[in-house]
Design a protein around this nucleic acid. Structure first.
Length: 424
RNA sequence: GGAGAAAUGGCCGAGUGGUCUAAGGCGCACGCCUGGAAAGUGUGUAUGCCUCAAAAGGGUAUCGGGGGUUCGAAUCCCUCUUUCUCCGCCA
């Protein structure tokens, strides 16, 4: 979430920036500042009263020692009154802080100055592209047909066991999954990311820390009996490793990678673009996460983009990189690049990665701070993450683009992981 | 799942109602000492919020989390969580 400080000091700037995300912030900011004013005045008065109360309690202690019990009763009465006052003020303060916090959580992150304004996906800006769209042979079919033909992914079976959106990978299909995961993790660790294997169930605090809660509650599977959530991305548990931590500037950059299954309810996205592997409730993904000094976070963002670009290049997939416009960006992001690969038989671009700099927005929720060498004051760190990569759509594109009458050709780079060079 | 014990600062660890403004040690930082270092020695060493133009300073809260008793709680009570020991079950 945004800091109170920036609202106090730069209200107009915040309003202007949030308009790029098509968010009208003025009313809510004014409310926040009003609550903040109240909060401070109550805190101030409460502290004074508490101070008085503490002082009197000490006097009573001293009087007991000297045996002056008459005065003690008077002081006790006074303190009982003070205590009541402090208690009421405390309740009022808690209530105001709660309201203030609720409002503060409604404000999205400020988009970076380079973010183009726009309504939705159609206003995203293509940064660059690479690879060549393949020319398919005349018998080419979409990946769901290929999956059936070679018996490598079974959607109906997943439907029987769990429900739609939970496919079963079989034989070479399963092996291909494992190959991609290992390839992605090896690439990330070679690039200096520490491999992490996190829990895939998280508690409320973690969901809150990375911004899934409270507003995106409906997108996560919730285990009611234990109040835990199935993670929608490894970003959640991995980023929360550093919740409530104070680093020193020399610790940067912190780089972590993790493979996890990801679970998304995808409420409200029935019908369109959900065929085959295009949109699933459970899928595999390797994520990269960085924590960085605010002055260097955009360097890290570029580095991460390069890393992801390297992956799609090595897989020989036609791709393009988009900078998201204000209207299409996520709530928590300051700048996001999306990677799309072309899936030839569908004739569609599929999003396979989203690389974002959250600046201090997540860090503020997480209380992830650092200190400059020799300084006392703590500063919020910057957090970044990106998919590197999400598997299903990569698989869709690989199957469709590499199909031949003889079978599906495995890209060179994956063969040492799969142990076979063709699915047939 | 059952029985018992425990949770204190970066770490170890003392502390069973007021002098805790948390002893002592280790670590770390800075100084003195030294040709330089070690040893020695001195000082400092948490976080949030409020106050202050800022810094300094001051106030306040925080001894696993939450609640309670009391004029006053690290200390007493309730509750939750976690860890350890023993038992049971189990990949």
């Amino acid at each position: 979430m945004l800091t109170l400080k920036i609202l106090q000091e730069n209200k107009d700037y915040v309003i202007e920036r949030l308009s790029v995300k098509n968010y009208k912030a003025e009313t809510i900011i004014n409310q926040i500042l009003e609550f903040d004013q109240k909060r401070r005045s109550i805190q101030n008065s409460m502290d004074t009263n508490q101070s008085e109360l503490n002082k009197i309690a000490k006097e009573i202690g001293a009087l007991f020692k000297s045996g002056n019990t008459n005065e003690v009763n008077q002081l006790k009465d006074k303190n009982t009154q003070l205590k009541e006052l402090v208690k009421n003020q405390g309740e009022e303060l808690t209530s105001i802080e709660k309201q203030l916090n609720t409002l503060l959580l409604q404000l999205p992150n400020l988009p970076h100055t380079s973010v183009p304004s726009g309504k939705g996906a159609e206003d995203n800006k293509e940064i660059r592209s690479g690879g060549n769209k393949p020319s398919l042979y005349s018998g080419a079919v979409p990946h769901w047909d290929l999956a059936k033909k070679y018996d490598i992914i079974d959607f109906e079976l997943g439907n029987k066991i769990t429900g739609s959106g939970f496919p079963v990978y079989k034989g070479k299909g399963a092996k291909l999954q494992r190959a991609l995961i290992n390839f992605f993790i090896d690439e990330a660790t070679e690039a200096g990311y520490l491999e992490i294997q996190p829990p895939i169930l998280v508690n409320e605090d973690s969901g809150f820390g990375t911004g899934q809660l409270p507003d995106k509650e409906g997108q996560m599977y919730h285990i009611g009996i234990d109040n835990l959530y199935l993670i929608p991305t490894a970003e959640v548990p991995v980023t929360n490793i550093y919740r409530d931590v104070i680093l020193s500037a020399s610790d940067f950059p912190i780089k972590m990678t993790a493979y996890t299954p990801c679970f998304r309810r995808e409420a409200g996205s029935y019908g369109k673009d959900v065929r085959g592997l295009n949109r699933l409730h459970q899928f595999d993904k390797v994520e990269i996460v960085q924590f960085q000094h605010p002055e260097k976070s955009y360097q890290s963002l570029e580095e991460m983009v390069k890393h992801v670009e390297g992956l799609v290049k090595k897989l020989e997939l036609p791709y393009r990189i988009l900078q998201l416009c204000g209207g299409d960006m996520s709530f928590t992001s300051a700048l996001t690049y999306d990677f799309e690969v072309y899936s030839a038989a569908q004739g569609k671009w599929l999003e396979v990665s989203s690389v974002s700099n959250f600046e201090s927005y997540q860090a503020n929720r997480l209380k992830l701070r650092f200190r400059e060498e020799g300084e006392k004051k703590t500063i919020l760190a910057h957090t970044l993450n990106g998919s590197a990569l999400a598997l299903p759509r990569i698989v869709a594109s690989l199957l469709e683009n590499n199909q031949t009458p003889e079978g599906i050709i495995i890209p060179q780079v994956l063969r040492k992981y799969t142990g076979f060079d063709m699915i047939n």
